[in-house]
Simulated assay, not measured.
Amino acid sequence: MHTETRTTDAKARLVLPKSFANATVIVEFVSETEVRIRRAKVVAEDDLLFAEESASPLSDRDRDRFLELLAAPPAPTPALKKAAARHKARRG
């Protein structure tokens, strides 16, 4: 990774290298003394997919098993009961 030191002007402006010309950037404030500047990858809104658009359908076997579990869920295990009790205690 190449590190370069740059100085800001009186208005806190920074001149970036030519490779950043006409680019969208992400400015990350890592800490009080560290700022990270990265070139952003811009994706057209029409190219974004919803999870539903890319999900593959369940097989018949998987669908049937899912519906069986909804109709008759298994009894809770001791670990699930313990986790539920911890959750209830925190919500108090």
Rank of each mutant, 00 (worst) to 15 (best):
E28Q: 15
F29N: 13
K81V: 12
S54I: 06
L70H: 01
V35N: 14
A10V: 07
R61P: 00
T8I: 05
L58F: 04
P76H: 03
K81F: 08
V25C: 13
P74I: 01
V35P: 08
A44H: 14
R63Y: 06
V35T: 15
H2C: 07
M1K: 10
I26R: 09
D64R: 06
H87T: 04
A84I: 08
A79P: 01
R86C: 02
R86L: 05
E45P: 04
A40C: 05
R39K: 12
D60A: 04
A44N: 13
L67Q: 03
I26W: 10
T77R: 00
A55M: 05
P76W: 01
E34V: 14
A71R: 02
K82G: 02
D64V: 01
F50S: 05
F66N: 02
A72C: 06
P57W: 02
T7W: 00
G92F: 04
D60P: 00
L48V: 06
A85F: 06
S54C: 13
R38Q: 14
L49M: 12
L58V: 01
N22Y: 12
R39E: 09
R39Q: 11
R86H: 06
T5R: 04
R36W: 11
A51S: 05
A51V: 02
N22C: 15
L69E: 00
V35M: 15
A89L: 11
R61C: 01
L49P: 01
D47P: 02
A55T: 03
T24M: 04
D46K: 12
M1W: 06
R90Q: 03
D62P: 00
S54P: 02
L14E: 09
M1V: 15
T5H: 05
A44C: 12
V30H: 14
V35Q: 15
T7G: 02
S56C: 11
E68W: 00
I37G: 13
P17C: 05
A55Y: 02
A51K: 02
L16H: 10
H2L: 08
L14T: 07
P74H: 01
L49Y: 08
P17K: 01
F29Q: 14
F50H: 08
N22K: 12
A51E: 06
V27R: 07
F20N: 07
P76A: 08
K82E: 11
N22A: 15
V35A: 15
A55C: 04
L48E: 07
E32I: 10
F66H: 04
I26S: 13
A75M: 07
D62H: 07
K11S: 12
T5I: 10
R13N: 09
V27S: 09
L48K: 09
A83V: 01
E4P: 01
D47V: 05
T8W: 00
R63P: 00
K41A: 11
E68A: 07
A85D: 10
H2R: 12
L16Q: 12
V30I: 15
L16M: 11
S56Y: 10
E32G: 15
T33C: 14
R65L: 04
A40I: 03
K18E: 11
F50W: 09
L14F: 05
A71Y: 01
A44T: 09
A12M: 11
A84T: 09
V25E: 12
P73R: 04
S59P: 00
D46F: 12
D62I: 02
R38E: 12
R39N: 05
